[in-house]
Design a protein around this nucleic acid. Structure first.
Length: 353
DNA sequence: CACACGTGGCT
DNA sequence: TAGCCAAGTGT
């Protein structure tokens, strides 16, 4: 009989009896586990589930993914957010196909080196797919352990995370790291919730320091967050006949690789009369024939660190041969749906075109 | 190493 | 409403 403390035994029993039936829990394929872990970064199961299904159907294995154009992959990712996840995953798929003919690495150090895979995801893949003894540390695990041990330092800085990693390493059940890691995360997702945790039915209640000291509501401790800044985006929706101008977004800003419209960004809310005087507007239209057809109301789009305030100026252009800004191209309305676009743009398009 | 990076649901 | 949160990583 392998030694295991009572806490771990109770946790594993609870997991066995209560775990959700999720598609990535019915496989040991590293590709599918990798995909699920990338999708679930900062993302709820309910939001990622359909994306996972569609992704596996479109790209059943790493070779299929590696062969896909980036635009198609981003289109499949559209609406899920954090698009660097999709770009990095494609990069890594191509990397693995080229270097090892598609064979996913087994050693933690080799997994950890892959682009888009950090400490958490490397430990998750190593333990879930290969049952190797690496302790995962995600938001769930940090919350569970900080409450269990009465950890009162902030968890959202490198120092706090490092201490919690030591706790996680120490608690890990090395005989069954796959189930143990997942049990801990499932407990965090189902019972040990950030607000209104279900302590009454928690299998670890009698071991929980925070519960004993009535501190569940104040643990884990987090540092105060900074205020969101605003960005004012004035989009030029330029149409001529059955074509519309799209812009591919590039490095160094949000939504890299996705498409939106030519944009005049201002430091505050701007009127069209102001926009038409800007050098950007002048360099596009100059004295060329064009007609402002409509100006949308203000669209508010919330990101983690930014509030975007967007208006859309719909313009009929008489000159399809005009000089477009860098990264812009004419796209037929028929093909518009094949381009990956941010949610903000998707909302505008579905309401106006 | 603080900050950037999306989106939607819940309080 | 405004803020918080959800299976983090890259720079």
């Amino acid at each position: 009989m392998i030694y295991m403390d009572k806490r771990a035994a109770k946790l594993l029993k609870w997991y066995d009896e209560n775990k959700r039936d999720l598609p990535w829990r019915n496989t040991k394929e590293p590709y599918q586990i990798w995909l699920s872990e990338i999708i679930l970064q900062q993302t709820r199961v309910s939001q990622g589930l359909d994306y996972y299904r569609r992704f596996v159907e479109s790209y059943p294995d790493i070779h299929a993914l590696a062969a896909a154009p980036e635009r198609d992959v981003l289109k499949l990712w559209q609406g899920l957010g954090y698009y660097s996840r999709a770009r990095n995953m494609l990069h890594t798929a191509r990397d693995i196909v080229q270097r090892t003919d598609g064979v996913f690495p087994v050693k933690y150090e080799d997994i950890r080196r892959l682009k888009g895979i950090g400490n958490y995801t490397a430990a998750a893949i190593a333990s879930f797919a290969y049952n190797q003894p690496y302790a995962v540390l995600d938001g769930n695990v940090m919350r569970v352990y900080s409450r269990l041990t009465g950890f009162t330092e902030p968890i959202d800085n490198p120092k706090g995370r490092k201490k919690l990693q030591h706790i996680a390493d120490e608690f890990l059940v090395k005989e069954n790291p796959s189930d143990y890691n997942q049990a801990l995360m499932e407990l965090g997702a189902m019972l040990c919730l950030p607000k209104n945790p279900r302590c009454a039915i928690c299998p670890l209640q009698i071991y929980c320091s925070a519960y004993a000291t009535h501190s569940v509501g104040v643990i884990p401790v987090k540092q105060a967050k900074k205020q969101k800044k605003k960005r004012f985006l004035n989009y030029l929706v330029i149409q001529s006949g059955d074509k519309i101008v799209l812009r591919k977004r590039t490095r160094g800003d949000i939504w890299q690789g996705l498409y939106d419209f030519p944009c005049i960004e201002t430091t505050s809310s701007a009127k069209v009369a102001y926009l038409t005087e800007t050098s950007q507007w002048q360099s596009i239209f100059g004295r060329k024939k064009h007609a402002i057809e409509a100006v949308s109301g203000e669209y508010r789009h919330i990101l983690t660190h930014r509030t975007l305030l967007a208006t859309f100026v719909k313009i009929q252009s008489g000159d399809k041969a005009m000089i477009l800004p860098e990264g812009c191209e004419w796209v037929s309305l028929r093909k518009l749906h094949t381009f990956p676009v941010p949610r903000l743009i998707d909302r505008y398009l579905s309401a106006n075109l």
